[in-house]
């Protein structure tokens, strides 16, 4: 089946739906109307740019360009993680923790997938490497942002409990154990839920795209299963890493809770 090409008029009609949503937000005083419009426009511009960039990248195919592209994606994801937190870790460290956790999880899982599982040659073939990393970063970013937001919020709200436990001679790990576990669960729940719903409730985007592009459904399904496994592992590793790093940063060597490090 040929892919039906979409014109600007088609996209414009979909955009009208978002505009209606913004009007509803205004009518219901949700305060989200400007965000809906701004981020809708931003998404459109970003995707149009990435379309052009990918066309150049696929044609070029060099390792240097793939690394450059991956770095830009990682740094942008790190900024997004920070932006999604109400209470942030101050300074560059807050950015570094989110970005570092995503680097460790998304990049390592992507490399394993490219070299060991898919075995594409060369391993940095941009048609595989860039979309794979993009999907991993997108999901890991959401998980890490949720987990970190939950952590900073709970540590501030439950300072009394944590310090009470420290005063009773517990280590910082014991005193914050339940909070850190809860944050890890919060970060991982979305991907676990999406695994439960995949195929039954929702048809994941990549699979749908491949089917629309003419790939046989069974082949598309296999790729989707692979991607969901990778996303689940990447998100889980990233969330655990981010909470581990934040815990070590927000408590000092004398097992004190350092809330002054939060903005």
């Amino acid at each position: 089946m040929e892919v039906i090409s979409l014109g600007f008029w088609d996209l414009g009609m979909a955009a009208v739906l978002v505009f209606v949503l913004a009007l509803l937000s205004l009518a219901l005083s949700l305060g989200l109307e400007w965000k809906i419009l701004l981020f809708g426009c931003r998404m459109t511009v970003q995707l149009l740019i990435i379309g052009v960039v990918l066309r150049y990248l696929f044609a070029d195919g060099s390792l240097l360009m793939v690394v450059l592209m991956s770095t830009v994606m990682l740094l942008a994801a790190g900024r997004e993680v920070l932006a999604r937190q109400n209470i942030r870790i101050k300074g560059f460290t807050g950015y570094a923790i989110g970005t570092g956790a995503m680097f460790v999880s998304s990049f390592s899982v992507s490399l394993i997938a490219l070299i060991v599982i898919i075995r594409v040659d060369p391993w940095y073939t941009p048609q595989y490497a860039v979309p794979l990393l993009g999907m991993l970063l997108g999901n890991t970013m959401t998980g890490i942002a949720l987990a970190l937001d939950h952590l900073t919020d709970r540590l501030r709200r439950e300072q009394g409990v944590v310090e009470q436990r420290l005063l009773l001679g517990q280590t910082w790990k014991q005193a914050s154990m339940e909070i850190r576990r809860s944050c890890m669960r919060t970060g991982m729940i979305p991907i676990i839920n999406s695994m439960a719903a995949a195929g039954l409730v929702s048809l994941p985007g990549m699979m749908t795209g491949q089917i629309l592009g003419g790939t046989p459904p069974i082949e598309a399904v296999k790729y989707q299963i692979l991607i969901i496994f990778l996303i689940a592992a990447g998100t889980g590793f990233g969330v655990i890493c981010a909470i581990w790093l934040s815990g070590h940063y927000l408590f000092d060597k004398r097992h004190r809770l350092c809330l002054e490090k939060l903005g």
Partner: peptide
């Protein structure tokens, strides 16, 4: 620190 606080304990 946890050993110190077990020896010198504060009750808030």
């Amino acid at each position: 620190a946890p050993v110190w606080r077990s020896k010198v304990t504060m009750i808030p």
